[in-house]
């Protein structure tokens, strides 16, 4: 009974903080006020301040996470609506994603290697650009640290989404296609949520890039990592 009560409180708390962060982002429209970043920081501070463990919070949080599944399924809807246009764009989408996949794995591996980290960490960071379950599966098969993989994935998702505005502006990435592919292949579903804020089309492109990149990296990561190590 008490668990249900805690669950309901954490769901309501999450909802309130979400609404607050959306309002804040509307009022102060900077990349650093991105709702996912602000909401995460506020919640972590609240939980730490009141000494509530993550497991306790997840009594309710799990219910919200459970809905992440159908939310990803829902991405088929914009994909379907934009299907005719997307069909014409398939070549640049595939090539961009391949470029991103190779750059992601190799820079992750090489930078970590040069910084002097163990191979366990190198395995873990190699698949950070793809969505959490895929990254965890790849990390496990390579022999990395699975829970840490989820953290790298989150950092890639949030930092990519927050910094994309600057990157697009200063490197002249203007086309919705390039932006969508950049966000989907570097920052997976969190990036797709960001791309969807610009337009439905950019979001659909991002979701295709996210899927392709997950498939590509699960295929190339083992080989590429062993070559680069």
């Amino acid at each position: 009974m008490i668990n249900i009560l805690i669950g309901i409180i954490s769901i309501i708390g999450t909802l309130l903080i979400y609404v607050l962060s959306i309002r804040l982002h509307k009022k102060f429209n900077y990349p650093f006020t991105l709702p996912i970043l602000v909401a995460t920081i506020i919640l972590v501070i609240v939980l730490l301040t009141f000494d509530i463990s993550y497991n306790t919070y997840m009594l309710g949080g799990d219910w919200v996470s459970e809905l992440l599944g159908p939310a990803v399924v829902a991405l088929a809807y914009p994909l379907y609506k934009e299907r005719f246009l997307l069909k014409k764009l398939i070549m640049p989408i595939v090539c961009g994603t391949i470029a991103g996949g190779f750059v992601g794995v190799s820079t992750g591996v090489l930078l970590t290697k040069w910084a002097g980290f163990d191979s366990e960490i190198i395995f873990t960071i190699s698949s950070k650009s793809v969505t959490t379950p895929v990254s965890m599966a790849i990390t496990e098969s390579l022999g990395g640290i699975t829970p840490l993989a989820a953290v790298f994935v989150m950092i890639a998702g949030i930092s990519g989404s927050v910094l994309s505005t600057y990157l697009f502006k200063y490197t002249g990435l203007k086309h919705y296609l390039g932006k969508g592919i950049a966000l989907g292949s570097a920052s997976h579903a969190i990036g797709t949520a960001t791309a969807l804020e610009s337009s439905e089309l950019e979001g659909s492109i991002s979701s295709i890039a996210m899927i392709l990149s997950a498939m590509l990296i699960s295929i190339i990561a083992p080989g590429l990592v062993s070559i680069l190590l």
């Binding site: 640049p92 950070k128 930092s159 910094l163 990157l167 697009f168 390039g178 950049a182 570097a186 890039a209």
Partner: peptide, 16 residues
């Protein structure tokens, strides 16, 4: 992680 993420965006975005 952040640097590599930016490089992914840069390459994937500009190639396409």
């Amino acid at each position: 992680t952040i640097a590599s993420t930016l490089l992914v965006m840069l390459s994937a975005g500009h190639v396409s």
